[in-house]
Amino acid sequence: MAIVFEKTKGLTDVQTHYCPGCTHGIIHRLVAEALEELGVLDKAIGVAPVGCSVLAYKYFNCDMHEAAHGRAPAVATGIKRVLPDNFVFTYQGDGDLASIGTAEIVHAAHRGEKISTIFVNNAIYGMTGGQMAPTTLVGQKATTAPFGRDEAHCGKPIRMSELLATIDGAKFVERVTVISPAHVRKAKKAIKECFKVQIEGKGFGIVEVLSTCPTNWGMTPTEALKWLEENMIPYYPLGNFKRPEGVE
């Protein structure tokens, strides 16, 4: 009997701790498949963040380095500068990348650091229990924004892909989501293209993945998928913001 699907070698057998309906699991799989399919799993070093994916080092079946909150791009820089021929990626959430670690991600991109970043944006702090994130939408409730995010008080949510796309050193910037099989396929394509930018030595690449958090959003998984589509995508438009010249 022909095998039509099997688990990627890029993931370990450890059962993840993610909540039911959370899309981290899908994104992990896409990253792991991309590593395997591009033939870089054996020379990959992943940098795990602080946030929901803090335990990512247990799930990816490659060398992993756990960073302090927000510092993954700096840690990845240190690794890549020592091992320029290896493949180095960071996997970060929105609190990690878009709040406490903005300096690190902006400057890693600015230096054109030859690393790849997977940025999971679910508009909330998941791990700590639903506090407001820099990407929480205006009006969206969070435990530290109990009446909903008030623009006059704390501004509008930050759009990191648009921001990073302005930086010369960032060679690949794309925003995707994984709320349907079609989107999952597009997301994987983007991740692979992003990784190739590093493999070909062209510079920094990032894929922002809009993700759900049913637990902290207070919804069922299907409601969460719908909420993401209706609320997040209009504010965070999907699509490619940047790719190396001459590539399509």
């Binding site: 940098v47 302090a68 510092r71 700096a74 840690v75 240190g78 690794i79 500068r81």
Partner: peptide, 8 residues
């Protein structure tokens, strides 16, 4: 943190 990565 770059030192942390490089040392690793």
């Amino acid at each position: 943190n770059m030192v942390y990565g490089a040392a690793g």
